[in-house]
Design a protein around this nucleic acid. Sequence first.
DNA 1: GCGTTTGATTGATCTGTCTCAAGAACGCAG
DNA 2: CTGCGTTCTTGAGACAGATCAATCAAACGC
Lengths: 242, 242
Amino acid sequence: MAAGLAERVIAGMAMFKHVSRPHLAELARHTGMTRLKRGDFACRRGQSSSCFYGVANGQVKLVLRSDSGEEKVLRVAEPGETFCEALVFRTRPNPIDAVALCETLLLTFPASAIHALLDRDANFARAMLACLSERMQDLVDGIEANALLSARQRIASYLLALAAAGRSSRVRLPVTKTLIASQLGVTKETLSRLLREFVNKGLIAIDKRDILLHDRALLAAVAGTTAAPSLSDTPASESSSV
Amino acid sequence: MAAGLAERVIAGMAMFKHVSRPHLAELARHTGMTRLKRGDFACRRGQSSSCFYGVANGQVKLVLRSDSGEEKVLRVAEPGETFCEALVFRTRPNPIDAVALCETLLLTFPASAIHALLDRDANFARAMLACLSERMQDLVDGIEANALLSARQRIASYLLALAAAGRSSRVRLPVTKTLIASQLGVTKETLSRLLREFVNKGLIAIDKRDILLHDRALLAAVAGTTAAPSLSDTPASESSSV
DNA sequence: GCGTTTGATTGATCTGTCTCAAGAACGCAG
DNA sequence: CTGCGTTCTTGAGACAGATCAATCAAACGC
């Protein structure tokens, strides 16, 4: 039954999309399942495991930590996503910490099972290469945002990206603002201030984790690299101060 | 003869290390060769090519560009290295510009030839996955340095990394200081000033592109995340001002 | 030789973002 | 309801690094 669950989850992952039923079943037999509580580590920096991981349900934050305790969030793995694939193909020790954000069910794919599957199915190799390539492009996108955009622009872009995923103009932040701030490379204070600024300009409305994008075009102008021309201080309504 | 050159270059690349002679020859037959002059583009952002590239000789800088003309160097591809592998496995348009830094001989691997090789040789798939994984870990290292270290620490780390590659304490900067600055995420002015500071502290000596690391241990202390304890202002020699 | 280009240095100043500090708002366990 | 931990907000001030501007030095073509 547990194996059945694993197989169903695995079948839904992009990387295993085109793998045949029998091969899936075989992989599932070698897949480990772990239940994590909030704050538990899926894996730690420095350890040289040779598995990678998948999230069945829950959320796992992937973070870089400095000696002095600061942390930088690389991304948050959601259900159906995998992480630490590189561990299977490289011997270098794991560079990141993976920490459960809530009760999480984790799948563990041992290197041996993955290598066996690579031998049997060239299309799986292709899918895996595609996944790593996508992950890489996401990293590059992040580097680009951090190097070339201001904090204000990064935050506006982030909101637009969230809205692009869903069709609507209402977006829900997937994690706490503190985590999002770290992901965007700003402090939580700066994120808070800039979101407030967007609200004051009438670009968005905030209700806890739900954000309503009032004016996507203007938000896109803020996000654009070319500094928005005439956006200095246009309050949403003149009467708001009364 | 040109094909012979291509085959020899290809054979030296990490990704093709374990590919058999006949398969190599077959790949070489489908590999394009281009001669680039300084400033020529190997590929441009936004174009959706489905090849990837290898450097036979010369240097190619891989850069992100903003609308306003600033640029961030991701890395510089040296002879024997490949770039833009993701283009073969993803449909998303190319996110970077690749520009020759000098006279450069470029190999072009078409997606079709790579996919054919993937079908024939599972070990090639593994090698390719290993290459992408390594590239990804390098990106993560860069993100970590930028997010968690100060400019001073990044520069010190960079010098130590150069020294670790070669065995000696004399290192030669692989490209101009301006490019290195961009790679490290600082302006050329800041790089210049901090290198000067290292010289004044007696940590290094600079002769154009050659740098001599006088005191690696101290340099490592500067690079360490925990701010170096008692390094405020220790000039190399008191008499240097005379 | 001598302009021109590319790269490096150095100083003076400015500013975006962080840091520190204090509250406020919320959720949850008892 | 009450207390407590977590997250978020807001302000005042500080600072690392950017920007602007001026030189300087080497390399290159003619």
